[in-house]
Design a protein around this nucleic acid. Structure first.
Lengths: 112, 112
DNA sequence: TCTATACGACCTCTATATCAGTCATTACTT
DNA sequence: AAGTAATGACTGATATAGAGGTCGTATAGA
């Protein structure tokens, strides 16, 4: 966004992040960890943990994933050992798809 | 991370983002969308789409979620309508948990 | 009760993510 | 085979995320 035009997000994305943040907070408390402790484990400032738990969309995705992982939240409902397998699956699929997408006609159905 | 101490991520987080990026690319192609088109729909620069599809951990979580949603990838394997429900569930759970987490005294095992 | 501390809400500063381009190469479409 | 569009890999400028702190309040434990 060039100027100070604030970025907008769909309700779905906002809700998803809100849910993730609340889940992280719940799991942290369940595991009896303080924000400070979680911050140290993740290697980030406490202020960042606060933003993550509030569902701030501007946090780095790597930080959010890392924090979620530390408190034991599975990403994509996949166990660690299955991720590599899924990656291979998707990459196999990618080799079957065209390398570039050329638009010729209208094909896309907008669902907004 | 004050200086140029590069942030590190666990293999699980890296794999998860790698998988997400590859899945986004695959879904974009399946839907016959170009990077440019996806960028415009998401309201970001094309270079950001490239980084997202490469699994760059430093992308904003909001941008990644938004892009994933546009190409039709469900977050947390939850349908849009279920998210609000899950949010309430977690927030109910939160009210039952302590507001602050005080570290209990170190359990002393100084018997060596 | 009393007290150490976890938390929320701020702040400033610096590193960097994002934007908006360019260019060369590749790969679709006709 | 030619033409055109898509992609990958860059760039510089600028907005902003994250670091690291402060302060006041609230809370869990003793």
């Amino acid at each position: 966004m060039s100027k100070s035009a604030k970025r907008t997000y769909s309700a779905y994305s906002s809700d998803a992040m809100h849910l993730l943040g609340a889940t992280i907070r719940a799991e942290r408390k369940t595991k009896k960890m303080s924000q400070q402790e979680l911050a140290e484990r993740a290697g980030v400032a406490r202020s960042v943990i606060q933003r993550v738990e509030k569902g701030d969309m501007t946090c780095g995705v790597g930080i959010v994933f890392e924090v979620a992982h530390i408190v034991g939240i599975p990403l994509f409902s996949a166990e660690p050992s299955r991720l590599a397998h899924h990656i291979r699956q998707v990459e196999d699929k990618l080799t079957l798809l065209p390398k570039t997408i050329h638009k010729k006609k209208k094909v896309i159905n907008d669902d907004f």
